Amino acid sequence: MADPATVDFGADDVLVIGDDHFDAESVCVVTGAASGIGRATAAAMATNGLTVVGTDVDADGLASTKALVEDEMDAPGDVVTVEADLTDDDDLRAVVEEAATHGDVRYLANVAGMQHISPLEEFPMDVYDAMHDVMLRAPFLLSKLVVPHIRDTDDGVGAIGNMCSIHGHVATQDKAGYVTSKFGLRGLTKSIAAEGGGTLRAFTISTSYVSTPLVEEQIPDTADERGISEAEVVEDVMLGGSRVKEMMRPIQVANLFAFGFSKHGQHLNGDDMTWDGGHLGTYE
């Protein structure tokens, strides 16, 4: 069972969309599915009736996601879990191969991420390399592997959704590794769209801060780097530029993936769903 402290949603919170491709024969691969936005995205897509192949390095977290979706939420779609290291090419190939045994692989949600807070001149290169591999190289390779499966469907319809961030649009201090990967992810997305022929689409989702373990774990480090309190990090650094003074919930982001993958996202291709509470578009 999923830890109640990390799950704040149920079936009623999911955006359910009528779409001919949202059925058990369509497979959606979701990375980072053991927690946070990845867990919520797996839940949203399964609640929409798809077969979800969720992957993560955290096997226990994956089991919790499966139990949450199938037992507690009673979702109509199945969740298949595949433990994998996103820095291992063979593992990534195995994930897509497994997904293909469960139906038509039409959707890929690249959600998994990591963070490190450090000034550029002190940024550890081994950490940078790991961040690049998880947040940019893995989405690149998974997209490369999934694209042929989408093309081989009867109508070539499918989409790749990439979890970006306002940090894929603007930079803040002490997050050079994260910012670099997120800007690159937008370039990958546009490249997929350029080659997709219109029916195979790609998009990014850029949010401000979302209430996830990834965000919560960076609060103490940000406080130390800036010499401020943890409360000030949340109020001033994270939400200070936003007009909406609360973090998004993971399920709210997951619903954007469901919409973007659906027929209603037909003209969302190569571009970004900026859902940031007014963070980027307004100022005081």
Score class of each variant (00 low, 15 high):
R93N: 06
G36L: 09
D276H: 00
P148I: 03
V7L: 06
D221H: 13
D224E: 15
K263W: 10
I219F: 05
G197M: 11
F183V: 13
H132S: 14
R186F: 01
S242N: 10
D56N: 09
C28P: 07
A223S: 12
D236W: 01
A171N: 09
A43L: 03
T207V: 10
G184C: 07
K175P: 01
V146N: 01
D3F: 09
Q266E: 15
V127R: 14
G49A: 06
G241D: 11
S165D: 08
K190F: 00
G18L: 03
Q173S: 15
V215F: 08
E83P: 14
F261Y: 11
D56T: 06
L86G: 12
I205Q: 02
A11Q: 06
L185R: 03
T222H: 05
H116K: 15
L62H: 02
V57P: 04
E25A: 11
R226V: 05
K175L: 14
F257Y: 15
Q115K: 14
M247F: 06
R39S: 10
F259E: 08
G18W: 01
Y107E: 08
C28N: 03
D276F: 00
Y178F: 11
M45Q: 15
G38M: 02
L268D: 06
M273G: 12
D126Y: 00
R201D: 14
M163R: 12
S242A: 15
I251G: 01
V14T: 02
T31W: 09
G103V: 01
M238A: 13
V111R: 00
G227D: 09
A24L: 14
G241K: 00
S191G: 13
T207D: 04
V234T: 10
